[in-house]
Computed example of a mutant assay.
Amino acid sequence: MKQAFFDLTVDVAGKSLHDISKTVQDEVTSRELCSGLLTIWCTHTGASLLVQANADDDVAADIVAFFEELVPKRPGHYRHAPDQDDNAPSHLRALLTQTQISMPVEDGQLALGKVQSLFVFEHREVGRARRLRLHFIGK
C-alpha cells in the first residue's frame, strides 16, 4: 500500500471555474501513482472544487451566473461584513459546493468521464493563488 501527501498551488482568475485536471493528472503521473483513491482538499473558504462538464464554456458561465443570483454580493446585507464586499457571499457559495473531492485513479489516470473536468471554483472577484492539499492511497 502506498500513501502520498502533496500540495499544489493554482493561480485562478476571479469568479470563474479553473480547469485543474491536467495539473492534477501531471502530478499523478510524475509521482507514479497507479491505482487507488485521490482526495483533493481546497484549503480556502472562498473557493471550492467541482467535477463538471468541460465540452462547452457556457456550462461554466451558467454555473457562475447561477451562484451570482443565488448568493449575490449585497453590501450591508450580510452580518459578516469585512472590508471586501465579496467576502461573505464567497463563503456562502463555498458552503453550497464542496471543498474536497475524492476520485479513483485507475492505471495512472484520473477516473473522469469523457466530458468531465476537475475545477477550482473561485468565488472571489479578484484572482489569487489557491492551495490544494492532496492525499493518495493505493499502489
Score class of each variant (00 low, 15 high):
V24N: 01
I101T: 03
G14M: 11
F6M: 01
V12D: 05
D83V: 03
P72H: 10
S30F: 10
T43D: 07
H77D: 04
F5P: 06
L96I: 09
A4Q: 07
F66N: 06
S90A: 15
V10L: 04
Q3T: 07
G14N: 12
I20C: 02
L70M: 13
C42R: 12
L134I: 01
T9C: 00
T39Y: 07
K114V: 04
Q25T: 09
G46W: 09
A61C: 09
K15H: 07
D26Y: 06
V126T: 12
R131Q: 08
S35H: 15
R93S: 13
S35G: 10
S35Y: 15
D19A: 13
N87G: 09
E68S: 11
V51C: 07
H77F: 12
P104E: 06
K139M: 13
R130P: 00
R130F: 03
Q3C: 04
A53S: 05
D7L: 04
S30V: 00
G138E: 15
R93T: 13
P72V: 02
T99W: 14
H135C: 14
P75Q: 10
D57G: 02
R130E: 04
I20E: 08
R124I: 05
T9E: 07
E106D: 08
P75R: 10
F6V: 00
V71F: 15
H44F: 06
L110F: 11
V64W: 02
P89E: 14
F5V: 02
D85H: 08
K114D: 06
Q25G: 08
V126G: 03
A88K: 14
D83G: 04
T23I: 01
D83K: 09
A55C: 02
S90V: 14
D62H: 10
K22V: 06
H77C: 00
R74M: 08
N87W: 14
D7K: 05
L132G: 03
S21L: 01
K2L: 09
H77P: 00
R133T: 03
S102Q: 14
L92E: 13
F67W: 15
S102W: 11
S30Y: 10
V51P: 01
G46F: 02
R131P: 00
A94C: 15
F136E: 05
S102K: 03
G36S: 11
S35A: 12
G138N: 12
R79A: 01
K73T: 15
D62M: 06
F119I: 03
Q84R: 13
S48A: 06
Q84V: 09
L134Y: 09
T97V: 09
D19H: 11
E32M: 11
W41Y: 15
V28E: 05
D58Q: 15
D57R: 02
A81M: 09
G46P: 00
A111W: 08
A65G: 12
R130V: 05
S35Q: 12
T29V: 11
M1C: 05
S21W: 03
L132W: 08
D11P: 00
G14A: 07
D83T: 01
D56K: 06
D7Q: 02
